[in-house]
Nucleic acid binder design. Structure first.
Length: 119
DNA sequence: AACCTGACGACGC
DNA sequence: GGCGTCGCCAGGT
């Protein structure tokens, strides 16, 4: 099977993944990359999301970095603030230092496995 | 073709 | 746990 080679296809894979993140939860760039089949390309995630607009149905604000923080855009874009506001609206809490406890809000797609012993 | 940049991440100190 | 470096990949100049 052709793995996605075209950049457009790759972007779509990223958007599709981000779209799966439910409100009230967040995912890291690296996590999204991995779920989209682009493991190791965490930087490309932010790149793809930056191409989005406000009209997009992709919940880009639910993607944060591995530190549980909103990655500061260059140029002091107001997007940072918007992202925080949107997350708070969805019930995601921030630390005094502007950090989100991933332990509580990170999205866990399909716990997979487990069929807890039905023995 | 080479080099720089970017919404990242893992490591080491 | 904060901070600096190096590694990664794709795009743009």
């Amino acid at each position: 099977m052709e793995s996605q080679h075209s950049s457009e296809n790759r972007y779509q894979a990223i958007y599709a993944t981000v779209r799966r993140i439910p409100a009230g939860f967040v995912a890291t760039y690296g996590q999204v990359a991995r779920l989209a089949g682009l493991k190791g390309c965490a930087r490309q995630i932010g790149y793809a999301l930056s191409a989005l607009t406000d009209k997009s149905a992709v919940p880009w604000h639910r993607v944060i970095n591995a530190q549980g923080r909103i990655s500061p855009r260059s140029g002091g874009s107001p997007a940072d603030m918007i992202q925080r506001l949107r997350l708070e609206e969805e019930g995601v809490c921030f630390d005094e230092r502007g950090r989100i406890p991933l332990d509580r809000f990170q999205w866990h797609p399909v716990p997979n496995t487990v069929c807890p012993d039905k023995n």
